[in-house]
Design a protein around this nucleic acid. Sequence first.
DNA 1: GTCTATATGGCGATAGAC
DNA 2: GTCTATCGCCATATAGAC
Lengths: 201, 201
Amino acid sequence: MASETSQTKQIILNSARDIFSEKGYDGARMQEIADRAGINKALLHYYFTSKEQLFKTVFSEMMGLFIPHLLQTVSGSIPIRDKIGMIVDIYIDFFSKNSFIPVFVIREMTNNPFFFSNYLKNTGVKSDRLIHELMEGFHEKVQKDFVIHLIINTLSLCIFPFAAEPVLKEVLFQGDDNHWKKFIQDRKKTIKEILYNAYSL
Amino acid sequence: MASETSQTKQIILNSARDIFSEKGYDGARMQEIADRAGINKALLHYYFTSKEQLFKTVFSEMMGLFIPHLLQTVSGSIPIRDKIGMIVDIYIDFFSKNSFIPVFVIREMTNNPFFFSNYLKNTGVKSDRLIHELMEGFHEKVQKDFVIHLIINTLSLCIFPFAAEPVLKEVLFQGDDNHWKKFIQDRKKTIKEILYNAYSL
DNA sequence: GTCTATATGGCGATAGAC
DNA sequence: GTCTATCGCCATATAGAC
């Protein structure tokens, strides 16, 4: 029946998400995805005709987990200081619980940059409009590149630590997971201070 | 003769570096590496017994291109402000010319974190000593985590933009490469200002 | 050292029974 | 919807001539 169907499909998607996150598109094996889902390869191909189609579905699902919330915050009519603060909180909290996403996004964005920009295009995101909304948030007149630096600085400070987590945790904290978790929570405050300072907010 | 030998070997390594950078370990094909080197697969296996061995050689060679210079700067006896300034310049200049390295490092560090921490271990890098050297660079007494934030902030601001380059260039600059290059040169100044500001240097 | 040819295994995908 | 069995291809790696 229909509910059984979609349940199996969702189990496959969860399994695929885990494997693609861990191994990347090229490293992932359909067999491994099937194993983790507790089914066989044939059934996998019954629901998703190809590996690429499965991947695209997983990719869109992942983006949908945090992009809409983020866009809504950027477009909101609150002061720019609060916008930045909220975005930092959203990013750090979300990536703390889903630390595989930054790794996934960076790896696949370099493997196939058009998956990402097409996703944005298809969901109707206009980067130019977002940039102008942020520009208008400043009291004085600011240049476009000024705001782009702000965007990239925020993304860098929030995303990079998670992308590099395995090595940073190992090298700087000798693999101590509790220390790492505490450090990441500290980071919300640290990043906000840096950005408020840098942009006199 | 010996010089011919090592010349072929070096051509293979250059070729392998390009392909591994572009496609990652799993995406890279021995055939493609051989093609770009202008030889055949059999000869490739004559010089490097396995794909993994070839990869490890390339990886170490890449790390050797910028890690030593960086460590030397951190351990130097110059004021901390100058250290940070120099590190930012080194990173941005080097990655501008070798933009494949951040992508490569992030992808492979997540695929196999121990390649990286083993590399550091084998080259005798003591992260704890580096942290303490930086701590002593501040006039007032600072906590260890304070310096670790500084390190991660610097790495984030310098590395992330290159790791995300394909998407950022497409989404924020509509693929305009000249604008991107100009923007990256600006970034040296921007990053230094942010860090000097954040740490009252 | 460098080549052609081939072994060997694994992977994505399909056929077809139930 | 779910399974077993298998096809066809491609990738790494090796054998062996020159």
